[in-house]
Design a binder for these strands. Structure first.
Lengths: 236, 236
DNA sequence: GCAAAAGTGTTGGGATTACACCCATGG
DNA sequence: CCATGGGTGTAATCCCAACACTTTTGC
């Protein structure tokens, strides 16, 4: 280090994670009960301060792993929040990230020390600081992005059925789609590989499992895939 | 302030602005020649450190105004950059913003003390730190967003012609569009108000001026307006 | 009167929507 | 044997892309 910039103020920099999961019924986020002051006992997003030798992405991955035990999951920077008084203790700039995980891979025991719990998106408790704002923005971004790109597969297990997928979309947009049109659209992308076996947990007939073709998924991610009719009206 | 978080490292936090302008021919960004060490004399984005009592958005607006004299222009947070060694002097987290301005409103004299200059997007000089990365991301984001929402009006003067608008789109996507389809699409949104007078600088016949209907613009901003055919292939 | 840019209309194909019936099976 | 959810086909419509000629006027 040659020298330092003189006279400028330094701040704490944190990362907060909005972690989405889907249990087959509703879309949920993972919250923790703060174990330290201020606001001990209140609900909050999982977060942490950025360490001297890690990048922001690394910090987000570290924090996500600490709470869920998961690595290599979908994680995207959402927005930087920097209101001077957002944290009453001391000015902290927070970079919010949102993660999409397969809720079944989530290891409950790891997170018990944090008193973590899943909350349905329409029953979020009061949150500390500006975390509710972060959650709202993340939800908007998820709707927006999912209307254009096939990211919701990240919330499903490796094998899933088309009715499950449709349930997920319907849950996120709080609406219903025509199942014939939905399955035609989804299958026409060629992103899904049909499996020989069926999921019989929801019907006597059973629904075929599909797996995501990861190769085509990566190749076509940027392409606009519109599984969602009239997204304009739904993303707010 | 009750107390402080113990044992955590503090960092400098900066804001850097990617300022886009359109001169009727090509899309350009505004760069400055650094007047201080390190890297004095090298080209760089306009930036500055976040002050104790301002939010990130306020910092970005302040910096934009300092360089261009403009207020109330389109300004959007792009991404936070936080590699531990992105600034060799001292760890600095930078929040990048991108701005779209009417290049004609830009006051050259204000910026002379910064040695500011406009550079066409395909002739950007070498930049300090990770600023080139920021520029590339901003360009991608501009293409992406402009393919879905009518933001490019922000780059044009209050009165403009449809051929001018088409030129702008063609410049940004480095391609050409059919003018009949283009003008039909643009006019069908109802966003434009035809003026009685013409711009005769580009042809003998002259092209009618239009003004943006700001009310409808705000109301329809979220709606997906696709002036750009096959955006999939163009946004990279 | 001609060059150069502005402006406008039609048509065919592909995509999207709306809609209804049969299938498989566990109970 | 029947209730439940899974799976599929078709027709009407809309949207979009492709395409060519007329208009205006400064020189």
């Amino acid at each position: 280090m040659i020298h330092r910039y003189k006279g400028e103020t330094h701040y704490l920099v944190a990362v907060d994670c909005i972690i989405f999961g889907f249990d087959g019924e509703t879309l949920k986020i993972l919250l923790i009960q703060r174990g330290f002051e201020p606001e001990r006992g209140k609900w909050s997003l999982m977060g942490g301060f950025v360490k001297p030798e890690e990048s922001l992405d690394e910090a987000a991955n570290r924090i996500l792993k600490k709470l869920t035990g998961l690595e290599g999951v979908y994680l995207e920077q959402l927005h930087a929040f920097g209101d001077p008084h957002r944290d009453p203790v001391e000015r902290t700039i927070s970079i919010a990230y949102f993660a999409l995980i397969d809720i079944h891979k989530y290891q409950k025991q790891i997170s018990e020390e944090y008193h973590a719990e899943w909350f349905p998106l329409n029953h979020i408790p009061e949150l500390i600081f500006d975390h509710m704002e972060m959650v709202k923005l993340a939800r908007r971004q998820l709707r927006y992005k999912a209307s254009l790109h096939p990211i919701l597969f990240e919330l499903l297990p490796p094998k899933f059925t088309i009715p499950q997928l449709q349930n997920l979309y319907e849950g996120i947009y709080d609406t219903t789609f025509d199942k014939r049109n939905f399955s035609r659209k989804v299958l026409s992308t060629g992103l899904l590989i049909k499996q020989p076996d069926k999921d019989k947990s929801n019907s006597k007939k059973g629904a075929f499992y599909y797996k995501l073709d990861r190769k085509k998924y990566r190749a076509n991610f940027q392409a606009f895939l519109r599984f969602v009719p009239n997204p304009d009206k739904l993303i707010h």
